[in-house]
Structure formats: C-alpha cells, structure tokens
Design a protein around this nucleic acid. Structure first.
Lengths: 154, 154
DNA sequence: GCTATATAGTCCGATGTCGTACCAAATGGA
DNA sequence: TCCATTTGGTACGACATCGGACTATATAGC
C-alpha cells in the first residue's frame, strides 16, 4: 500500500514534537533552580517585543490560558526577575516589567544557548536551515489561523 | 547590530515550539474525554512499531521518565484501550497489548486527523513540505545524539 | 447615568509530569 | 552458589497546567 499525503504531514509533526521536547530540555538545563521554559519565554518576550505588557497579552501571544500566565508570573516575581504594577490606563489590568536581574538572566541564558548551538552550526549547512525557516513560519501561521477560526480565544 | 547565526537557530526552534503546541491542541481536540496526546502516542506506537512492548522500552522511545509512562498506561488501562500482562521472559517486566477498542480508537483518530490535514494539503505545496522533512529528521537525530552524550538515560 | 455585558486577573480543584525512594527480579562475578 | 549490582516497575510528593467559578473594572446600549 503506497503512502498517502497525510503520512508526510504526520511524520513532519512527529519530528517537530521530538525536536521541541529535546530543545526544551536543553533550555531548562541552562536555567537556574526552579525556572522552566515558560519563565524564560516571558523574559525573552519582554526583551524582544516590549517591556510593560499585560499578562493577558502575553497569555495570548503564547496561546496559554491566562491562569497559567498568572502562575508563571508568580514564579518570576518571587525571584525578582520581573516587577508587576497596576496599569494606569485600565484599573483591571497590570503591566509586567523586567528587573535588571531579569534582563541579566535572559542575556546570560542566550549566551549559553548560543554556545550550545555552535556545534550545531558546525554540523549543519546553514543554508539548509535557512531554507526550512520560511516553510515553518508559513505552517505556523496556517495552523494559527485555522485555530482562530474554530476557537473562542480565552 | 547585525544578526548572528544563532538567531536563525533560535527562530527555527521558536517556530517549532509554536507548531508543536498548535498541533498537540488539535490532536487533543479529536480525542475523547480524558485522553491526551501521550495516550494517543502510545496507541500509535503500538500500532506502528509492534504490539507487546514493555513500558520501559516505550518510555525510552518517547524520552519520558518511566514514572510518566506508568501514569499514561494507567489511563489507557482504565479505559480498556490496552491490556498489560507479565512478560514471560522477564519476571520484572510487563508487556502492553492493544485491545480492539484501542486499535479502533487509534484508527478513527488517524482518519479524523487526515481529514483535518486535507485543507493543509490544499493550502501548501507538498514539495516544500517534503523538502523540509529530511532537515527536520537530521536536526532531531543531531539533538538526540547530543543529549545521549551528556545524559545518563533513565 | 444606569444597567447588562465584556474583560483582566486570581483562586481552587482535578489532573499531568517527573524526581526520589523503594521493591522485586535478573545478572555477573567471586 | 552467594551476594553486589543492575534493571523494570510502582508509590509518593512537589510542582505545572488548565478549566470553572469568582471579583473588580470597563464598556455599550438605552
């Protein structure tokens, strides 16, 4: 029996699932004590996109429930990696700011990971990696839009 | 400041993380009541690879701790989707077999997902997807081997 | 302006993940 | 043949995820 098209899709998603698991594990190996990937994701997002975002905005950006974001922020706050203040423009909401410690931790982690990725760069043809990126981006956008069609966002 | 090579790597892993999250969500939307992705992964593995595997073998295949596998199998067993028997060749270990209900559920889920992926196939050039697969596979193998260098496997 | 509804955030409870500790069976020397 | 070590599996506890219920504030329609 010949393979049908969906097999290709399934196999790609399967590889993606494994890669995600492995990269998450090596990220978490680089983080101190009780910090895990979602903590880093928030620090990174606040650095790259914009300081002072609201919890809900970030929950949507990462597609996680807002209760999970509350929990993640609690962990960052307890370690003084972020500060959370009332939003002057909206009494219901808050704003999250990086502390210097948060900025430092994010920078150090990036440096460590960049070191890790050097042997990957040595082993791989960068052109081949560059070539898959736009396809992954398209795929992500497609799935994201399909999700928005059916789901009510939180 | 120009971008350095690691940025490309990070961006690729970031896209992969989001895609994993979205595809897992749509898989789980297709599964009945309390079943989640790891349950399906086990059913699928037993179908594709071989019935009668031991829990530890599967834990290694999925790179999860054996305690997580115990938990996942407990859920499948409670729903009569697998049967678990003593391993006649090794008194410490067990073997996991699919029930008819387990086979049926796996088959039905695959059918549903294949339906979902039809619009993806329509929207995408299959050649572009086929082109990224070997790169993803290489990447997965590379990361897997790097992990085995540092880690003691469970 | 008043009220109905929508939105931002938290709390709580159910369930999942996973490290540690443990037990039982197998293996490999002496 | 012992006994030390390794290996397969489970129990338990700490913590993460997330849906449902709740509170407070904002907004819309009248």
């Amino acid at each position: 029996m010949p393979d049908h098209e969906p097999s290709l899709i399934f196999e790609i998603f399967n590889e993606i699932g494994i890669i995600e698991q492995l990269t998450r594990a090596s990220l978490e190996a680089r983080l101190p004590d009780g910090l895990i990937a979602p903590h880093f994701t928030v620090l990174n997002h606040l650095t790259r996109v914009k300081d002072g975002q609201t919890p809900l905005t970030m929950a949507r950006a990462f597609q996680v429930p807002k209760t999970s974001m509350t929990h993640t922020l609690k962990g960052l706050l307890a370690r003084d990696l972020v500060e959370i203040h009332a939003n002057p423009d909206d009494g219901r909401s808050k704003q999250v700011w990086l502390t210097q410690a948060g900025k430092d931790l994010r920078a150090q982690t990036i440096t460590d990971l960049a070191g890790d990725s050097m042997d990957l760069i040595k082993a791989f043809d960068l052109n081949r990696l560059a070539a898959i990126k736009p396809v992954l981006t398209e795929l992500r956008i497609f799935l994201d839009e399909r999700r928005n069609k059916t789901d009510g966002v939180d």
